[in-house]
Design a protein around this nucleic acid. Sequence first.
DNA 1: GACTTCATGTACCACACGGTACATGCGCGG
DNA 2: CCGCGCATGTACCGTGTGGTACATGAAGTC
Lengths: 204, 204
Amino acid sequence: MVNQDDPRPGSEALHGTDRDRRSQLVDAAVDHVAAHGIADLSLRRLGAAIGVSHRMLIHYFGSKEQLLVEIVRTSERRQRDLLSRLHLEPGLAPADVARLLWQRLTDPRLAGQERLFFEICGQALRGRPEAAPVLEGLVTDWLEPLVAAETAAGANPATARSRARLGLATVRGLLLDLLATGDRAGVDAAMEEFLRLYYGSDRT
Amino acid sequence: MVNQDDPRPGSEALHGTDRDRRSQLVDAAVDHVAAHGIADLSLRRLGAAIGVSHRMLIHYFGSKEQLLVEIVRTSERRQRDLLSRLHLEPGLAPADVARLLWQRLTDPRLAGQERLFFEICGQALRGRPEAAPVLEGLVTDWLEPLVAAETAAGANPATARSRARLGLATVRGLLLDLLATGDRAGVDAAMEEFLRLYYGSDRT
DNA sequence: GACTTCATGTACCACACGGTACATGCGCGG
DNA sequence: CCGCGCATGTACCGTGTGGTACATGAAGTC
């Protein structure tokens, strides 16, 4: 009765509702963080925002650090889901696939997530531990499918890797531009210019 | 004798040594911030690091906010100086100019500054007020010289703008890739691929 | 040589933070 | 109906923060 908190939340002691509550909390936390940033997050404010006392966040996640790890992981998963959920009808030209992907990425409803992405990058580059694992997958995780697409399109492996890396970097750079300036038309035009260079001027 | 601090540092009351001291402090602060990040900066730690009491930082800058403004502004100025100090001998092909600029930007000694750039971006995208002014100049300030270079190379204005925007975004995306992965060779290869697409395969 | 000015330091304040101890109350097994 | 386990809340603690009041001492002035 002295200490009734399970010191190992997430262990086998958690079943059913408890696990549900936990993921429900982390979902709400990601939403809040996508909207308000991760920089000056405090357990108290987060708790107040999602309707729980900061005590419970500690209870479910052990510490602020672990909660942040969970938030970052979940946010990453959401990002990746967005790509994998992109089921394309076959017969589309690569340039059109890219254009479609760009359209989805720049959906204003995703702006919060994209901002969060760059914010987490900034923190991770500083060595903030809970954001550091992101750096690993930041490039490589996205590279694999892109390389696959390039090789399928007939590029030799080395070129495919460079081209994939280039495409990823350009998309991110333009995304940053869009978030900073909000100049949708200008950024879209730059993207079109890129597609022209990347896939050739003929849209097959 | 009650309050001997000038409430308006930077006003006409500051002359000579005072102003020098101030800029000396902000220089040291930028160095420290480039090395240790801006996220969890505290006046006390910064003061200890650069050899001054946190009291004096308040004295010279009025508040932490204003100090951060100064730091960001100075860091920006340094970045831009880096570009303008790039006096190139004429007769270089645009692709070679770009390659040279890329070499300088990716100098490991600049890694701290580059990281700081992305960190500030992340914060600014969140609406942190002292970083917000950065967003304005983040694209446009760099676009002007690039557009000038493109038009000089014979592109029509609209295309020049899109191409400039694209080049800037790609450089930044690849810079982020480099900082995250450290894979210098891979990123350089992607850059070469971009230059090939951007300026054509022939290196005049 | 007394007076003033001002840069700098020391000690302090109120506050918000992460984290902990303890209370409370709900839901379920007997 | 009881009793226990557990989710949740409240009150607290130590710490570090930005910012302020006041002390101190070294220059410069008349």
